[in-house]
Design a binder for these strands. Structure first.
Length: 272
DNA sequence: TCCCAGGCTTGGT
DNA sequence: ACCAAGCATGGG
């Protein structure tokens, strides 16, 4: 099917989103963007005569997924107005640099595995590992299912995938999901605190990865992943806060319900 | 060679 | 509750 949408640059900039580190299977070739997530695939491009009109192409029964994926029910313009009027100079600069950012709601299983891979790793290598997994254990388009990954010996899973010690975590989670000990749906619909608590109970999932799964897979928007870059930001650009707790009090009280969006803007801006 | 990368687990205080 | 070491891998 084909869908045309009008999305202003204030609220949708695919080049920004694609390179923001939240998504590992979004690519661009010439004017065409392509997203893969779970079993789903979509292509889109910006109409040449307009900066705001996009045409999307996907299977009929996948449109609902993609609508949700791009979080099109949420008005990011409202967040942007608040940030523009704030007295946070770093964040205002980040918004100017990252205008059109969104928080994607991606396939939950793919997000679990992708962010298990992400720990103590870098983005090009994460993409590479994911690409190999999709090629080797699926058709290269769909993300490999837990049932499949559960059958792969860890030695094979870690061989040639650059997964390293993370293969153990992926294997264990795949087995638990496959044999029904863990239901992914059980992670849906909880508060931020409960969600992170449930996630960090899993082997290989610490606070950072839990916040990423919560934000990008479950769309818990008050998540705020803190990695090495965010620590750098807090120490260098928010040095008036005496510690990380007082900084988080500021974030949580000033940007309630969209902390994850604020974090994404900061992260992208710092890495420029 | 050492350091870093969207960190976590484990075992010591 | 806090801290350091160890953990695979690849790039700079």
């Amino acid at each position: 099917m084909k869908k045309q949408l009008s999305l202003s640059e204030d609220i949708f900039n695919p080049d920004i989103i694609m390179n923001s580190g939240q998504v590992f299977r979004m690519t661009r070739e010439e004017e065409y963007y392509r997203c893969l997530s779970g079993d789903n695939e979509i292509m889109f491009y910006r109409l040449p005569e307009s900066r705001e009109s996009f045409e999307f192409f996907c299977e009929d029964d996948q449109w609902d997924f993609w609508w949700s994926y791009f979080d099109l029910d949420t008005d990011y313009g409202l967040y942007n107005r608040t940030i523009e009027n704030s007295n946070d100079a770093f964040l205002r600069s980040a918004l100017e640099y990252a205008r059109g950012m969104r928080i994607l709601k991606q396939d939950l299983w793919e997000i679990f595995v992708s962010y298990l891979i992400s720990q103590n790793n870098n983005i090009p290598k994460i993409k590479k590992s994911i690409h190999i997994l999709c090629d080797r254990y699926s058709n290269g388009v769909a993300f490999p299912k837990p049932d499949i990954l559960a059958t792969i010996p860890v030695s094979e899973l870690s061989n040639g995938t650059a997964l390293g010690y993370r293969a153990e975590y992926i294997s264990e989670l795949s087995q638990n999901v496959s044999n029904g000990k863990i239901y992914l749906d059980d992670f849906i619909g909880h508060s931020y605190t409960e969600t992170v608590a449930k996630l960090t109970a899993l082997k290989g999932v610490g606070p950072k990865v839990a916040n990423c799964i919560a934000l990008y897979g479950l769309h818990v928007m008050d998540s705020y992943p803190i990695d090495t870059w965010m620590k750098k930001i807090i120490s260098e650009d928010y040095d008036s806060y005496k510690d990380i707790n007082s900084y988080m009090e500021y974030i949580n009280s000033t940007y309630p319900g969209y902390q994850g969006y604020v974090q994404q803007l900061q992260f992208y801006y710092k890495r420029k």
